[in-house]
Design a protein around this nucleic acid. Structure first.
Length: 937
RNA sequence: GCUUCGGUGGCGGAAUUGGUAGACGCGCUGGAUUCAAAAUCCAGUUCUGUAAAGAGUGUGGGUUCGAUUCCCACCCGAAGUACCA
């Protein structure tokens, strides 16, 4: 009987889903374990072999935990709102919900084929109204909250209102938008409702404000910072400019500190934590206040180097700084305005590529040095970023290279505050190896002491304060797109009003066109039924808008990260109609124990979702702060692209070695037409694309070779390998094993189909262990000690490897095990049974088949996982000396204690140790519990 | 520039706290089986050398009886980030 993987896999996949084998229950006496994958975006292209890598790893771990007696939750769903579906809708006119459904169906089919143990009864889709109802609900919660800096948590807006009513906002310490207005309770109570609303909006966790946004006109929408790469849009690579727009934002910056310190408590990969730390960008320093000559206003500048305060020779403002207009005087007005205009025209990309050129203009105004009262000029320059710190810099040319360059370029004075340090060529940027000079009372101090004293002086004069600054910006939450969650918001008197939770979900309306309207309104502006009737509490026709009962709705939709920021909680109770998840289910599952996904989400989804969970936690809606205890980033599987060389301007292609400095272009060709020797099948190529039909080819030795290169797998590069082809040819079990065998889970690695024969023949050998001459043949006898040794070595290694997520080495261990067992022709039932259970997380179909052939009725998935017994392995007790330092150390292979005489004998008979002993006598033997033996001589 | 991670055969990659470097797989070579091929099985495969032997984990130093592993300097690669004051 040969290994018929096609039938076996089909049979068991049917069995598993038919019997709901992997359904997880919210009440169980078993300990819980929650394994989650980052849910996919169902794109039109389908899966390639790179996609399932993480799913296979998480599936192995889930199955392993099931064997270990855990109640495992292993769900899957779809992040189904998003731009690609909408782009497709724009091009074809088909409704995104239609194409999304199709794509999901195809994804599901492909996933099912790999034998995953997902509990599909818990599937969720972010674009389902039953789901986004709760996304909208949470948005309302954000809107109705403010952030209290004293208790460092989000609180209900009602509490803020009562604070205002009692004390005004003088004593309040809250995270808010820049608004200078201060009021006492009396004034607050005298404000109109609209005015109150306006003020409250500055404090809400979700707020509307005019902010500078990244506008991508090609995509017709704003983008978050993490959606921009090298100044171009991540999707499409289009130009992005800065633009002021009224937008919803989420006050994620309030959580900077907690998001940063929370990293210490979670088991996430270090590089990823580091990325989040950089993105949050904490820096500690001082806020320095500069009076302005002839004005009442002050310029606040953030600096990390208050010790160099005496080196300040000018102040630079960002062109967008709010004081620029006020302080610019007559003759400077023109040049300043021109400069502002020009820098606002620059795209992100221009600004970035323009880093080296120096530009700026003098405002004509002067600031006063806070300690010396010297007059120092105020300049503007776009090297100062409006979005960071206060948008103002106290320029210290001697200590900062940009200030240095700027001062030299515009011939501004430079004061050297570093004793005996040469700054004639460049600024001195170090924080060590200097003492201060030219700095009055700071003279002779180093960085640390200088900072302390400078700050103390500034504080005394009320000219400065200690300040911590973060790079993390509030997240823009509006998208001018169709395929996203609608806001549960209508506008009354131009102020946003939340629709009551009772009437959720606010369903996405149908539109004819998915592009923004011509007057720049988002696509929802194309809907004729997008108004809110406050009497009946329903969506009605736009014609009925009277601004008394019927009001216009918010036209923007939420960004992609809204739905993905809390989905892990929904899996716990996915069909709940009354809550996003019941308290009982939340308390039972608590958090994700293992989360697997790509590191490309480090500063997007993985930061937003942490924030979102913190927020829910503050409101007492979830029981844990951080939702994922452990996270693993799977590396990408790369494609092995093939190229042909085309002579420039011709339709002639030349084989790889014939280039000889001719001018050529590289053209991707489909890797299916290239064999493992990089030879191209020209006949198939000619049929593939018309340009090759009549093309000329120059051969070397009658063969045509292509150039190979490893790059990302993508349809457009013609290097995609589909899991379906592999399943057809070798089966899902082989694919699963091979993907794990390819290398460490977290490393990027190129796909190479040729290598798969190794894991395929391993499975055949495994199958043959149970079969002899076409018959299933295992015997019940006493297992040989040799077979037990082989088995238990493997059990030990595999258990350890799975716990360490070192799946590639456990596959190796299986291969060694099967080879060794077949070498000694072992067909002992108990040994092979244990091996089958051991292998089943990796190759579930074949193991399930064999399990049933062994006469078991239950599915293999819940059988107790084999544990190793050291008694079977013990043998060579001493390996070799470990270290020699007056003492000799021996490493033991087994923990079992040893007879001292045996050690002595071994030591003396071993030639290597004999050399070390050099004739000396063994005085004392110390056995250390940690497997090490010290021999003193 | 800064931060982080990495550099081991023809290739993907193994190697516990420093202890026989190259497990396992691919590829390659030879052999068996076959009319032949596929498949399968056996043997070999770091490099130099016929061999004996020697060299060898990016480079150069150091610690150590012993270094892929620890320390210092440098080179190269990948990822992230960047007028961040």
């Amino acid at each position: 009987m040969s290994y018929d993987f096609i039938n076996i896999e089909e049979k068991w996949q049917k069995y598993w889903s038919g019997n709901k084998v992997f359904k997880a229950y919210n009440n169980s006496t078993l300990p819980k374990y929650y394994v989650m994958d980052m849910f996919p975006y169902p794109s039109g292209a389908g899966l390639h072999v790179g996609h399932p890598l993480g799913y296979i790893a998480s599936d192995i771990y889930s199955r392993f935990k099931r064997h270990k007696g855990f109640n495992v939750l292993h769900p899957q769903g779809y992040d189904s709102f998003g731009l690609p579906a909408e782009q497709y809708a724009i091009q074809t006119g088909r409704h995104p919900s239609e194409t999304t459904k199709e794509n999901i169906l195809r994804y599901r089919k492909q996933l099912d084929r790999l034998g995953f143990s997902f509990d599909w009864s818990r599937e969720i889709r972010t674009s389902n109204k039953d789901y986004y109802k709760w996304t909208q609900w949470m948005f309302i919660k954000l809107y109705n909250s403010w952030f209290d800096l004293k208790s460092n948590k989000a609180r209900s807006i009602d509490e803020l209102i009562s604070v205002f009513e009692k004390n005004g906002n003088y004593e309040l310490s809250a995270s808010k938008n820049e608004s200078s207005e201060e009021f006492n309770s009396k004034r607050w109570n005298s404000f109109s409702d609209q005015k109150k609303e306006k003020i409250l909006l500055d404090y809400r966790m979700a707020f509307l404000s005019e902010t500078e946004v990244n506008w991508c006109s090609k995509l017709g929408t704003v983008l978050a910072n993490d959606e921009i790469i090298d100044g171009l849009s991540e999707r499409g690579g289009y130009e992005v400019i800065r633009k002021k727009m009224t937008q919803w934002s989420i006050r994620i910056s309030a959580y900077s500190d907690r998001l940063l310190s929370g990293l210490n408590d979670i088991d996430w990969p270090d590089p990823l934590k580091e990325m989040q730390r950089n993105w949050i960008g904490k820096s500690e320093g001082s806020l320095v206040k500069f009076d302005i000559l002839n004005f009442d206003n002050q310029i606040e500048a953030f600096t990390t180097r208050p010790d160099t305060i005496y080196g300040v020779t000018f102040v630079t403002l960002a062109p967008e700084h709010s004081l620029v207009e006020l302080i610019t005087k007559g003759e400077n007005k023109n040049s300043v305005n021109n400069y502002i205009l020009e820098s606002s025209k620059k795209t992100e990309r221009d600004r970035m590529s323009d880093v080296k050129s120096i530009s700026g203009v003098f405002t004509g105004a002067y600031a006063l040095h806070p300690l010396t009262n010297n007059k120092i000029p105020i300049w503007i320059s776009d090297y100062v970023l409006a979005g960071y710190g206060t948008g103002a810099v106290m320029a210290v040319p001697c200590g900062d290279q940009r200030d240095y360059n700027f001062a030299n370029f515009f011939d501004l004075p430079i004061v050297n505050v570093f004793k005996d340090i040469d700054i004639s060529k460049e600024a001195f940027k170090e924080k060590d190896n200097f003492v201060l000079t030219n700095s009055e009372e700071l003279n002779g101090l180093d960085f640390k002491k200088g900072c302390l004293l400078a700050l103390k002086k500034l504080e005394k004069l009320d000219k400065g304060s200690h300040e911590i600054n973060y790079k993390l910006r509030d997240a823009v939450f509006s998208r001018q797109r169709y395929w996203g969650e609608p806001f549960p918001v209508y506008y009354r008197n131009n102020m946003p009003v939340m629709i009551s939770e009772k009437y959720l979900p606010i369903e996405l309306p149908d539109v004819d066109k998915y592009l923004p309207t011509e007057d720049g309104k988002p696509p929802l502006g194309n809907s004729s039924n997008w108004a809110w009737d406050t009497l009946n509490n329903i969506i009605v026709s736009n014609n009925l808008i009277d601004n008394e009962i019927v009001f216009r709705m918010e036209l923007n939709t939420m960004p992609g990260w809204a739905g993905s920021s809390w989905y892990f909680n929904r899996y716990m109770d996915p069909t709940n109609k009354d809550e996003f998840a019941s308290k009982k289910s939340l308390d039972y599952w608590k958090e994700v124990d293992l989360y697997i996904g790509g590191s490309e989400h480090a500063t997007g989804h993985l930061l937003y979702s942490r924030f979102w969970q913190y927020f829910l936690y503050d409101l007492g809606l979830v029981p844990v702060k951080d939702y994922a205890k452990k996270l693993i980033n799977q590396g990408m599987i790369l494609g092995n692209s093939a190229f042909v060389y085309r002579l420039n301007g011709t339709n002639t292609y030349i084989s790889k070695e014939l280039i000889n400095r001719q001018h050529v272009q590289l053209i991707h060709v489909d890797i299916r037409y290239v064999n493992s020797n990089d030879e191209l099948d020209l006949e198939s190529l000619r049929k593939w694309q018309p340009q090759f039909k009549e093309a000329k080819f120059e051969f070397e030795n009658d063969k045509f070779f292509v150039k190979r290169e490893v790059e990302k797998m993508s349809k457009s590069k013609y290097n995609v390998v589909s899991p379906d082809e592999i399943c057809e040819k070798y089966g899902a079990d082989t694919l699963r094993l091979y993907e794990m065998f390819l290398g460490p889970i977290d490393q990027a690695k190129p796909w190479n189909t040729a290598g798969i024969t190794g894991t395929f023949s391993f499975l055949k050998k495994f199958w043959n262990l149970f079969h002899e001459n076409e018959n299933f043949n295992v015997v019940i006898d006493k297992p040989s000690s040799e077979s037990l040794k082989i088995l238990h070595k493997t059990i030990k290694k595999v258990n350890k490897d799975i716990e360490n997520f070192s799946f590639n080495t456990s596959v190796s261990a299986f291969m060694i095990c099967v080879n060794s067992l077949s070498a000694i022709k072992c067909n002992n039932r108990s040994v092979l049974e244990s091996l089958t259970v051991l292998l089943s997380p990796f190759a579930p179909h074949i193991c399930e088949e064999i399990w049933s052939k062994l006469g078991h009725k239950e599915t293999i998935s819940f059988v107790k996982y084999p544990e190793y017994n050291s008694d079977y392995i013990k043998e060579d007790n001493i390996e070799y000396p470990v270290s020699f330092n007056g003492k000799l150390k021996f490493k033991l292979i087994q923990e079992s204690s040893l007879v001292i005489d045996q050690i002595k004998q071994n030591v003396i008979s071993d030639q290597r140790t004999n050399n070390f002993l050099d004739g000396r006598e063994i005085k004392k033997i110390i056995i250390v519990p940690g497997k090490i033996i010290n021999i003193v001589c």
